[in-house]
């Protein structure tokens, strides 16, 4: 066991029962205290990878170790024990819609600790203050904007001071201001808590500002990795296209189709 790496993935592959291969031969090291991004196009398997680190999915082969313990053959109760040291921020926040902002953040404390009400109240207000929403504690999730909901979810994710925080598309669907607020918060909270963060995203520009290390995933494989500067200057065609948002490149603009001219003139229905 290497205590410096919070997550270690060795030669992992994953496929559904239907035979579709989602991930193949993934190797990763995520060191303690770092913010690491996993990037790739939609549907390339990066969310699947994240779920595997959380123990929600099991790999077809290979090994996933979190906090030095392999998740592959763990029972549900043991996975729950490990999950109490980690947390996940879901794509759209996944706030409990029948509870207020305050209750959402207090929820993990009520469920997992025996602290008294006044202590929980103070802690919740501290967490909400950290994301700038102490004043919104009485609002219901339906009354929050997308960016605010994401921040509340962030406060909930750090409610129990986790050692590992996983973010599933934290920037999806946010305006530029909320975007950079969330980005800054992820970095600041990571450093303040001494935690380790993994961000799954396709938002290159925002994440390059805050992350220490980046893995690129395409077609279920890691095709490139490096620090933000290395990625910016990368000459790998795919990475270049992805980082600079070019329309055509190794990822073609056109969905595979028969020849254009013959398709138009041929009169065939397809």
């Amino acid at each position: 066991m290497n205590s410096e790496n919070v997550v270690e993935i060795d030669r992992l592959s994953f496929g559904y029962n239907s035979g579709r291969q989602v991930l193949a031969d993934i190797n990763m090291r995520i060191p303690r205290g770092k913010v690491v991004a996993i990037m790739g196009q939609s549907g390339c398997g990066k969310t699947t990878l994240l779920r595997m680190m959380g123990g929600a999915l099991r790999p077809s082969s290979g090994d996933v170790r979190v906090f030095g313990e392999s998740l592959v053959h763990k029972k549900q109760a043991e996975i729950y024990r490990l999950r109490r040291r980690m947390s996940m921020l879901f794509q759209f926040g996944a706030l409990f819609t029948d509870m207020s902002t305050f209750d959402n953040v207090a929820f993990p404390m009520w469920e997992h600790t025996r602290m008294d009400e006044s202590m929980i109240r103070d802690l919740v207000l501290m967490k909400l203050h950290a994301v700038g929403l102490r004043g919104a504690s009485h609002l219901m999730p339906s009354e929050l904007s997308g960016g605010m909901a994401r921040r509340v979810a962030l406060a909930r994710a750090i409610a129990l001071d986790p050692e590992l925080v996983m973010y599933d598309e934290p920037f999806a669907g946010l305006d530029p201001i909320s975007l950079s607020v969330i980005g800054q918060l992820i970095r600041e909270l990571n450093d303040a808590l001494g935690a380790t963060s993994i961000i799954v995203t396709h938002d290159v520009q925002e994440s390059l500002k805050i992350v220490d290390y980046i893995y690129f995933v395409a077609d279920g494989r890691i095709i490139a990795q490096g620090t933000a500067d290395e990625v910016r200057s990368s000459q790998v065609p795919y990475v270049h296209q992805f980082v600079w948002g070019e329309r055509d490149g190794p990822v073609p603009f056109q969905y595979p189709a028969p020849d254009y001219a013959s398709h138009l003139g041929g009169g065939s229905k397809r």
């Binding site: 959380g54 024990r81 999950r83 947390s87 996944a94 706030l95 409990f96 997992h112």
Partner: peptide, 12 residues
């Protein structure tokens, strides 16, 4: 809305 997944990831 992934609320059940979120709960599951909180070890609940």
């Amino acid at each position: 809305t992934e609320q059940l997944d979120a709960m599951d990831m909180m070890a609940i």
